[in-house]
Design a protein around this nucleic acid. Structure first.
Lengths: 202, 202
DNA sequence: CACTAGTATATGTCAAGACATATACTAGTG
DNA sequence: CACTAGTATATGTCTTGACATATACTAGTG
């Protein structure tokens, strides 16, 4: 599981509780490449502890609920290093928006363009906030800091590519719509007009 | 569910069986933006039928198993159109490779570069096959065909962005490694300096 | 003749993830 | 004083998706 290894990675940097992992790490540091919900983090910590890859000790607190601080164990470090050097399969592209677009040929022109523009705006917002973060977190020349910056770069590259693609698509579709308007016999031809020589259309 | 709407979309184009949806559509047409396993397709068809969005009739065959041909119903068309115009939330970037990279600071230099190069090669292969498909399927100027081509463009843009990012990362990390080699001694560390925890020094 | 691949549908089971809710205490705000 | 937000852990449950297996018939290959 990826989440297991993300947790091991964070715990190797510093021992902490499930609450800290959620609020400090997954909601902030890792937010641009992996998210996890609280319930899942606690359950995964349980699994990792059962397998001996992390260990925990309870810190009693008076004015707060007790904290269960998790540390990575030597087998945990081993597992993390083993996994980090192993090839991960390319995750397939899997985007509901592309399903929408693929089957949008029955949408009114305005709706079609609107959906694309909305998507572009959302992507632009994501890009802006990623860039702001990248700027804020751009100091540090150690390896750890560089790796963090590279993950931000990946998210930025992804968003930029998405926006560029949307702009091109918007242009293509606008041109198509314009062209269809100028051709009153609006029959979308899926195949080439029937002028081929072989095989008569009986 | 996205899969439900993908199925509705395909069935609007043409009535077909679960088997056809799997082998002709999801394994080919939609392969670059959505995949689905056979069991899930059959079960989803069942749900859609229960909800009246598709209907089926059995075609008896002698030398083959019977075919259960599904057609989209008017409510199904309505649902598809409604969904196509509704805004889909941006799916978060979610890539196990970025977890690997983020926590790769303990990897030997060669392993680190190797992992990135392997990734680049896999991405390049994907890009090549996507480009080949885009070339083969580039005829057709109707709206349906254009929309299909746009989905291919999206996948191509994604792969290209990934490769560019990997090239930049490879360059950045090579430079960092080179620089670290020329500066022997203490490297900048974010956390406690690494001493041998073996305790008993002999 | 045994084996494999293709056509076709269906169920069982498990992991990952998302969402809701329970518990329990404190501190600050209106 | 009531309410809200914050700290902290935990369980219940549902959906999506992945993988395995069952059934059943035919055609081609070694």
């Amino acid at each position: 599981m990826s989440l297991e290894h993300a947790i091991l990675g964070f715990l190797r940097q510093q021992a902490m509780t499930g609450y800290d992992l959620k609020t400090l790490r997954f909601d902030h540091d890792a937010q641009h490449f992996w998210t996890a919900d609280q319930a899942q983090i606690y359950r995964t910590l349980g699994h990792l502890e059962n397998r001996g890859l992390v260990s925990s000790r309870v810190r009693r607190q008076r004015s707060r609920p007790d904290r269960k601080v998790y540390s990575i164990t030597p087998p945990g470090v081993e597992e993390l290093d083993r996994w980090a050097a192993s090839p991960a399969p390319l995750p397939p592209l899997r985007d509901p928006f592309l399903i929408q677009l693929r089957f949008a040929d029955h949408l009114p022109d305005d709706d079609l363009l609107h959906v694309l523009r909305e998507r572009r705006q959302a992507m632009q917002q994501r890009l802006d906030s990623l860039r702001a973060r990248a700027f804020e977190e751009s100091r540090g020349s150690g390896r750890d800091s560089i790796l963090h910056q590279l993950t931000l770069d990946a998210a930025i590259a992804d968003a930029r590519a998405g926006i560029d693609w949307l702009d091109n698509s918007l242009e293509t579709l606008s041109a198509l719509i314009e062209q269809e308007r100028q051709t009153p016999g609006k029959q979308p031809r899926l195949f080439a007009p029937r002028t081929d020589e072989r095989g008569s259309t009986s």
